[in-house]
Simulated assay, not measured.
Amino acid sequence: MIRLAVLGAAHGHVGYALDEAARRDDVTLVAAAEPDAASRAAFLAGLGDVPVYDDIATLLHRHEVDVAVVAGVYAQRGAAAVAALEAGAHVLADKPLCTSLEQLDAVASAAARAGRHVSVMFEKRFHPVTLAARRLVDDGVLGGLALVASTAPHQLRLPDRPPWFVRRDGYGGIAGDLPVHDVDLVLALSGATSGTVAALTGNSRPDVHPDVDDHVAVLLRAGSVAATIEASWLSPEADELHGHYRMRLTGSSGTAELDWGYGTLRVATHDRAPWTEPLPAGRPPAAYFFDALAAGAEPEISTAASLLATRVALLAQASAEAGGTQLPWPATGRE
């Protein structure tokens, strides 16, 4: 039986792990902790007899934990992950894993000492569109991958956001947050272990949220693949979608256009007219992690993959703060 605990619940994505635990008979939720009363009420209500604490240290002192879900205030996640690892638990984290390179180095060191997994729930990986596109790339249908272009607009819905979300000391930076899903996919698709990254950020509403930028453009070199990633908090709030997330893969033999918003994958090659690719069933965002632990295997989103995608995203943030300077990656770390 896998003993699960929640160490921070400041975002609805904590539900990925809680929902998966409820579906399984090999996982039991032993406790949860969240310092903020409003967040406890919003995201940890309905846990029945499961004890809920306002302090992570108290939870870890009182309970044996095999897996810790880290989904608190962004800037507090690195410390929560380190505490979990030092207590001997694996870490299953919402993105972003942390908000600074110093925090990331601390997580990487703690994971190495503990010999435990750190995995970020990059849920785009398990969407039917993504699974189908990865199959096309793996089968060589597109030829050698050359270019990736993605767009990830999000609705800000500011009245629904807590105060920490629009403060730099709580949120971190947009380049370290929103683009990380697509950074992870570029790394997974390319298999690259080194490259360069540069980014520019901006704030279209400094009168509303002066401390946090609301859009970013990332230029990522991953081995021989060049990727552009545009992300923002500027998705129209009257739109039916929280964000119309899309990606175009260009290879030497063809292209694939992923549309996560509407669940389609359009493909064209030099020797075949465009077609809509059939999609497989998707997977729940946290299933891969518990399936791997139950089998004694490394999770598909491994510690190395989680740390590297996070590092590249945080380096993008550092680049933006330096005016768009191109930075090498992995730069530091043991990914």
Rank of each mutant, 00 (worst) to 15 (best):
V91T: 04
G115S: 04
A111E: 00
G173K: 10
W164L: 02
L97K: 01
G144H: 08
R167F: 02
P96N: 06
S150E: 12
D177A: 05
P179V: 03
Y171G: 00
V91R: 03
V107F: 07
R168M: 03
A146H: 14
D105M: 02
G172C: 05
D138W: 07
K124R: 15
E123I: 11
A114D: 02
A108C: 05
A106T: 07
T99Q: 14
G140F: 05
H90E: 09
R157G: 04
R161V: 03
A133W: 07
G172Y: 03
G140W: 07
S150P: 02
A111N: 08
F126H: 12
D94H: 10
V120F: 02
A152F: 14
W164I: 04
E102K: 12
S109Y: 14
V91F: 05
P179F: 01
M121T: 09
L178N: 14
G172R: 06
L178H: 12
K95Q: 06
V118Q: 07
V166M: 01
Y171M: 07
L156Y: 14
G172T: 07
V118I: 06
K124M: 15
K124V: 15
A146I: 12
A114Y: 05
V183I: 12
G115N: 02
H181T: 09
T130I: 04
A152R: 15
D139T: 10
V180D: 01
A110W: 06
F122V: 13
D160E: 14
R161S: 00
P179Q: 01
V137L: 11
K95P: 10
G170W: 09
D160G: 13
L104S: 11
D94Y: 04
P153G: 02
F126S: 10
V141H: 04
R134A: 04
F126R: 14
D182Q: 14
P163F: 02
S109V: 13
Q155P: 11
G172K: 01
H127S: 12
P162E: 02
V107G: 06
T130Q: 13
L92C: 06
L145H: 01
V148C: 10
R113P: 01
G144T: 13
R134F: 11
L131M: 11
G172P: 03
D160Y: 15
V129K: 06
A108D: 11
F122K: 11
D182E: 14
P159N: 06
K95A: 03
P179R: 09
H117C: 14
A132Y: 06
T151E: 14
P163E: 01
K95H: 04
K124I: 15
L131K: 13
S150W: 13
V137N: 00
F126K: 10
A146F: 02
I174N: 03
G176E: 08
L97I: 06
V141C: 01
A108K: 09
D169A: 13
T99M: 07
R167M: 03
L147Q: 13
L156N: 12
V120W: 04
G173D: 15
L147M: 11
V91A: 08
P179I: 08
H181E: 06
L131Q: 09
A111M: 05
P153S: 00
V183T: 10
W164K: 00
A114C: 08
G144A: 11
P159L: 07
I174V: 10
H117K: 13
L97N: 03
Q103I: 00
H127G: 08
R168K: 08
D160Q: 15
A106Y: 05
R125Q: 15
P162T: 10
R134E: 08
G173C: 12
